[in-house]
Amino acid sequence: MQVAVCAQEGSPDAAVDPRFGRCQCLVLVNRENNYWESIANPGINSSGGAGIQTAQTLVDRRVEAVLVGRIGPKAMAVFQRAGIKVFGGITGTVRESIDLYHRGKLPLLDGANSIAHAGMGGGFKKA
């Protein structure tokens, strides 16, 4: 089964990216057959709902777990309803985070740990 990690580049040795909806890359790793693959994050340039778009991609890929730094409430809701487990506290590289996950060292998140975003830009506000 595949595990997805938010990363700054598309490789198992890349540094993790603490952002979810705006992470550069998603690295999918399958330890059972030593297979990995990277996909660009489709949400990175979206003007709003980035986390939902990123979550949709991972739901479509049928991942079993997602390893993140921060994640907002909407993306979290998608994973919870899809029955995909989300773990926080990624650190170092993708490989290191996967290792921590398999050793049961990453905390299982039961809710968002980051507030909702209004998207990019969003216009001016009164002073």
Binding site: S46, G49, Q56, A82
Partner: peptide
């Protein structure tokens, strides 16, 4: 089928294997 989530420019929908989530605020 996922079509609705693909075409929504505001990412207000997510299609799961047996459920479609709507985010009305988006």
């Amino acid at each position: 089928c996922g079509r609705c989530a693909q075409i929504c420019a505001f990412h207000a929908l997510a299609v799961l294997p047996d459920e479609v989530l709507v985010f009305p605020e988006l």
